[in-house]
Simulated scan of single mutants.
Amino acid sequence: MVGVISDFRTEHGISHRVSCRALGVSEAWFYKHRTRRPTCRELRRQHLIEAVQEEFDDSGGTYGSPKIWIRLVRQGWRVSVNTVAKIMAELGLLARKVRRRRGLTRPGKRPAAPDFVRRDFTAEAPDLVSPPRPANPHVSESVRDAIRDHGTMYRMTTNRKVHAA
Rank of each mutant, 00 (worst) to 15 (best):
T10S: 08
R45P: 00
V139T: 10
A123L: 15
D145S: 10
E50D: 10
R45E: 12
K97F: 04
K97Y: 08
P132A: 08
G92D: 07
Y154C: 10
A164H: 15
R44T: 09
E141C: 09
I87T: 01
T39L: 09
S65Q: 02
R155D: 14
D149R: 15
Q46P: 00
T35P: 00
D58T: 04
D127Y: 13
S65L: 04
H163N: 12
W29Y: 12
R21E: 15
R100D: 02
A125H: 15
A112Q: 12
R78I: 07
D127T: 14
T35V: 09
W29I: 06
Q75G: 08
A125K: 13
A164M: 12
T105E: 08
M153K: 15
L23E: 05
I147M: 15
H33P: 01
E50L: 03
P111R: 13
T83V: 14
V162F: 13
V25P: 00
A95W: 02
T152V: 14
R37E: 07
I5D: 00
A135E: 08
G76N: 11
R9G: 03
E11P: 00
M156K: 15
K161E: 09
F116Q: 05
E90M: 04
R160Y: 06
P107M: 06
S80N: 11
Y31A: 01
R71Q: 06
S65V: 06
D145G: 06
N136L: 09
R78P: 03
H47N: 10
E27M: 09
S65G: 04
F116C: 03
G92N: 06
R160E: 14
Q46F: 05
C40W: 06
K67T: 00
E55Y: 00
N82R: 14
D127Q: 13
G103R: 12
L43H: 02
L91D: 05
C40D: 13
K161H: 09
E50R: 02
L72H: 03
S65E: 02
R102F: 01
A146F: 15
Q53P: 00
I5W: 01
G13E: 10
L128I: 15
V117E: 07
G103C: 07
D115I: 07
A165Y: 13
S130F: 14
A22F: 07
G108E: 12
R118G: 04
H12M: 11
R34K: 14
R78H: 14
S59T: 00
R100P: 00
T10I: 11
D57A: 13
P38K: 05
V84S: 01
D7N: 06
I5R: 01
R106K: 11
V139I: 13
H12A: 11
C20T: 10
T62W: 07
V129A: 11
R71W: 01
R118W: 02
T10P: 00
D57H: 05
V18D: 08
A28P: 01
I147E: 10
R99Y: 06
I49K: 05
V2C: 03
P111T: 13
Y154S: 14
T62F: 10
H150I: 11
H12T: 02
F116H: 08
C40T: 12
